[in-house]
Amino acid sequence: MGGMGALDMSGSLFSTTLSYLKDVFSSVRSILESCVTAIPYLFSAGENRKEVTEQYPDPISSRTADDLPSRSRGLLFNDIDRCTGCRECEKICPNKSIAIETQSGSDPAKIWVSLFDIDFSKCIFCGLCVEECIPGSLVHTKQYEGAVYVLDDLKASFGRGGVTPEMQARWAANRRTHENEEVGF
C-alpha cells in the first residue's frame, strides 16, 4: 500500500526521519481517504450512488425499445406503398447494401417496385438513406435486436415481387375500359 521513495541521505538524521515519518503518514492518510470515499456506495447513499447495471433483457432494470430516444437508428423499414422507387437511397448508401429493381406499374407513370432488399449484414445504420428518402417511406424502427444464425436472414426485402403476365393483362384490360369510357363509346 503506502510506501516511500529512496531515503535521501542529504539532510541531517533528524530531518530525514521527520520527512520519512511525514511521508509514511501522508501515504497512510491518502489510502484511508480513498477507502472512506467508497463507503457511501455500500449503502447506495444518495441519487449518485445507485447501482447502474442494466440487466438486459429484463424490462424493469434495463431500457427497452420504447425508452430509446425518438431519433435512435434501429433496423430499417420501408413502407412500399409510399415508396416511389426513385433509388435515391440506393445511390447514397455508402456500402451498397440496398438493392432496388423496378418495373412499369399499372399505368406507365406509376413505378412498380418489384425488388427492394436491404442487406443488414452490410448496413452500417448511418441513416443517410432515411435522410435522402423524399416520400419518407424508409424509416428507422426502434428494433435493434439483429442477431441471426444464418447470414441470409439479415436480408430484409420489402419489394412487391415481379409483375406477372396476367397482372399486366388485367392492367391493360382496365386501362382499355378506362380509355373507352373517356372517348364515350
Binding site: 500500500m1 503506502g2 510506501g3 516511500m4 529512496a6 531515503l7 489510502i31 480513498s34 477507502c35 470515499t37
Partner: peptide
Amino acid sequence: SRVNPRTRVDQVTDFAWKV
C-alpha cells in the same frame, strides 16, 4: 484491495524493507 490501485513489485519490496 478493491478500492486501491496496485503498486509495482519493487515498490512493494521497498515498502516492506523500508517501512
